[in-house]
């Protein structure tokens, strides 16, 4: 395609000519553009010397500055720890109750406890302590073992495992039915004399109390309010609980409910933080 003699002299074409008169003109990119291109290539190599880049067999070149992203991350973390340190130091020295009444510290826990709660508690109890199917709500003021800060801390530390005997073999079917409708009616303030009588006769009060409001020492449920530990408070739900009990190993259909202990998994300070965090959901006493 290239002719020795260019038939179109002085035109600044590249010498590539097709079909007699179609030729390619030489229009190079602007000079500054070419300078930028070479500068960016130079930058590539310079960057590789300043920062870790070129791979070796088991490693990579370290770079002149010695910078690494993990190093930067650790520096950032150290900076964060520095900001947290005064708070963490205070938390170490104080009891959970003192933390709760300290305005600054409780704000700190409200912000930082979220991660702890998310990692350890939210899987069962839900974000914000909303509870889940058959897992207790933490945002309400109905507590099986008591809702003051010390008790909450103790619950997290040692865990809880309540027991209710399965009554399926001890009671007749119609007795279970009467008791169930009595219990459901309690939270609606319905009168049920037969149920009340049976509640006394069968010694339900031994655990749930004479007023059916539960005993925090035993962790027995308050039957008079509208909050249900298992199910949604239908008669069938209650029948199930009475018949098969809770954590009763003799009954295969028993309701399983166990709060694991966290003293082996979390530090004392983290447990204090969690107790304060849970208390601040709005149900703490």
């Amino acid at each position: 395609m290239t002719d020795k003699k260019n038939p179109f002299p002085g035109e600044d074409n590249t010498g590539h000519i097709w079909d007699d008169n179609l030729r390619e003109l030489n229009n190079p990119p602007p000079r500054w553009w070419m300078i930028s291109l070479w500068a960016s290539i130079a930058f590539f190599f310079a960057y590789g010397f300043i920062y870790p880049m070129y791979p070796l067999i088991t490693d990579a070149t370290a770079g002149l500055t010695g910078w690494t992203s993990i190093g930067e991350y650790k520096e950032g973390l150290a900076e964060l720890d520095k900001i947290r340190k005064p708070f963490e130091d205070k938390i170490k020295k104080k009891t959970s109750k003192e933390i709760l009444t300290d305005k600054d510290l409780s704000k700190y826990v409200e912000a930082s406890g979220k991660v702890l709660f998310g990692d350890n508690c939210a899987a069962c109890h839900g974000t914000g302590g909303a509870g889940g199917p058959d897992y207790p709500i933490l945002a309400d003021d109905d507590w099986l073992y008591g809702g003051n800060i010390e008790t909450i801390e103790q619950t997290i530390t040692n865990g809880r495992k309540g027991i209710m005997t399965a009554h399926g073999k001890m009671l007749k079917e119609d007795e279970i039915m009467t008791l169930s409708s009595y219990v459901v009616g309690l939270s609606n303030s319905k009168k049920n004399e037969a149920g009340a009588k049976l509640f006394q006769e069968k010694a339900c009060f031994a655990c749930h109390g004479a007023d059916a409001k539960g005993m925090t020492v035993l962790g027995s449920a308050n039957l008079t309010d509208g909050i249900w530990r298992f199910g949604n408070g239908t008669i069938d739900d209650v029948k199930q609980t009475i018949s098969h009990g809770v954590n009763d190993v003799s009954d295969k259909k028993t309701r399983m409910a166990e709060m694991p202990r966290f003293k082996d998994r979390l530090s004392k300070d983290d447990i204090k933080k969690l107790a304060v965090y849970v208390h601040m959901f709005g149900g703490g006493k």
């Binding site: 839900g126 914000g128 909303a130 709500i137 945002a139 309400d140 003021d141 309010d225 909050i227």
Partner: peptide
């Protein structure tokens, strides 16, 4: 979360 909470009273 939760949007609202029923209390014991």
């Amino acid at each position: 979360q939760p949007l609202y909470v029923l209390q014991s009273d």
